[in-house]
Design a protein around this nucleic acid. Sequence first.
RNA 1: GCCGACGUAGCUCAGUGGUAGAGCAAGUGUUUCGUAAACACUAGGUCGAGGGUUCGAAUCCCCCCGUCGGCUCCA
Length: 651
Amino acid sequence: MPQAASPSATGAGKTTCEPVPGTPPSTAEGTTRARWPPLSASSALRPAAGKVGGTASFPRPNGRGFVFGRKNMPDLETIRHSAAHVMAEAVLSLFPDAKFGIGPSIEDGFYYDFDLSRPLTPEDLAEIEKRMARIVEAGLPFQRREMAREEARAFFAERGQAYKVELIDDLPDPVVSLYTQGNFTDLCRGPHVANTREIGAFKLLHTAGAYWRGDEHRPMLQRIYGTAFASKDELNAYLYRLEQAALRDHRRLGKELDLFSIEEETGPGLVHWHPKGGVIRETIEDFWRKEHRRRGYEVVYTPHIGRVELWKTSGHWGWYRENMYSPMEVEGQQYMLKPMNCPFHILIYKSRLRSYRELPIRLAELGTVYRYERSGVLHGLLRVRGFTQDDAHIFCRPDQLEDELVRTIDLAQFLMQTFGYEHYDVELSLRDPANIEKYAGSEEGWQHAESALVGALERKSIPYARQEGEAKFYGPAIDIKLRDALGRAWQGPTIQVDFALAERFDIDYVAEDGTHRRPVMVHRALLGSMERFIGGLVEHYAGAFPPWLAPVQVVVLPIADRHTEYADKVAEQLRQRDLRVSVDARRENVNYKIREAQLQKVPYMLIVGDREAAAGTVSLRLRSGENLGSKPLADFADRAASLVASRSMEL
RNA sequence: GCCGACGUAGCUCAGUGGUAGAGCAAGUGUUUCGUAAACACUAGGUCGAGGGUUCGAAUCCCCCCGUCGGCUCCA
């Protein structure tokens, strides 16, 4: 059942209009929970356009976006927040009856939410951008003033700004601050640039609907996203990165490389793996199983459906029901498609009496689960309705917990390293100390588990961020966020202790003294789901899979028809070495075949003509464009086979 | 689910009320070629589904389905 702890989207460290204390912010209130910026959940899972770039390349100031470094150099957050105000002013000039929500700076840009009389069109965006340019050009000063909250309330009420009034009503402060530039005055904590001219380069990116205060029961506002930088060059660099990210989009590459498809006739969020995607998945799964067995896991298979009573016992019928497919009735019994594998693994554990001597028991499964997701949230392979988790459940004694966690982290690190994820951030989700009654399990259990998690991380010398209050009700967890080749964050391995299920299924083991005791249960998914993981890999590699994963590892390109026979012989010999080889024997010129192989990102191209056929060699060209010239076939076969065997990232 | 945009040939896209188009891919023929696109011809579409307006709908309207950008949620 591991579900990724969602990275909170709370705006720690963000400049925002929302909370508006009457005093200017102090740098001391900087974020404590994150060494990386808070990401919206969606950006963690799917680095979509607009969220790309991450902080790796755009360092943020600590805290609230105060001026730092050289004086008079406004930082990015201040620039962006100011740009949001300028955008609001432009919108006001176009829509005099506009009502304003909030307009914070965010990672990579800013947005502002508006309540408008009609939907925005692309032409509106262009017009708003034009008006913004005039405001920036005019060099209007930002003026701050303070007002008693009642006075400010009246000020906004008079202007029909109901959302601002609501914000003020939620503020505890007796005095609030307002910022004015040109014809636009906003409730805002600041800070802002001194003058609109300091905003530099900006661009509006897209519009979106957004519920007022993120609450689906409240009005839907129109949000405009934009970004701003101190200079035109930085803006262009950012836009270039967006283009690069779009080129890596796994949905685009999935089609171009013929890896998978999602068919309307089958239904949304249901993935068809094509032969080439299937090879990648099979290779990863084989590796996964082998590595798990090597580390003491036992692989199991469990059903895709189960009686509804099972889910009542597990509790999912209660708290997870809205994500489950409706029951199907068979012979008067109700069955559910499984959204989780854990109940089945527990039943395997429970199928006979267990001794303390056989713990830990590690049951692993590539288990396919189905979860109902609202239609608007589906996204390629990254958010689907049917997926295969690399799931495992560890049942152990309390005294074994920390060791098991260390072993699990080891395995996670090994996997990540194998796939070339070199950077990651670790979050430790703990109970909310102010609210301990809402959690399942005993006080001692929690304390033990939390200290085992901390102990494991410290034994591994892994830096982590403590996140109090982020734990699920059933147990504390470690979540690992991966950084891909573009520095974007992805949901990675998750390791969760569970106090609820062992209890609900009443599982136990016989201890040394003959008493029955409750084992500790750990859920863990290291790749997450095969769908999401491979979707992420496609983007991480930009479609250029390392040789061990490449669907076609070698393509042999005969120069003319008379070389086809030799090409087939070469291919056959390479297949004897377990390499995946194809021969492009079409009556096309070599350049054409090379181009095609290149676009398919095949690691190795072997060009064979008269010279090679006579000498028993192949002319090796790498996907990188490097032409290594003729070499004996056996040499190439050795090289390729050894790089594949070692799962090397090299060509 | 909600807001907005979109859905035309296998793919990428043009076509805004008057007989459905291009490039690439595919098929056939010609070319037998040395490291990123040879040439010619041919075939290919109930313009996402259904309903409506109209003499006439890819085009306008309604309603479904799906995709995309977000909101929300998560593997």
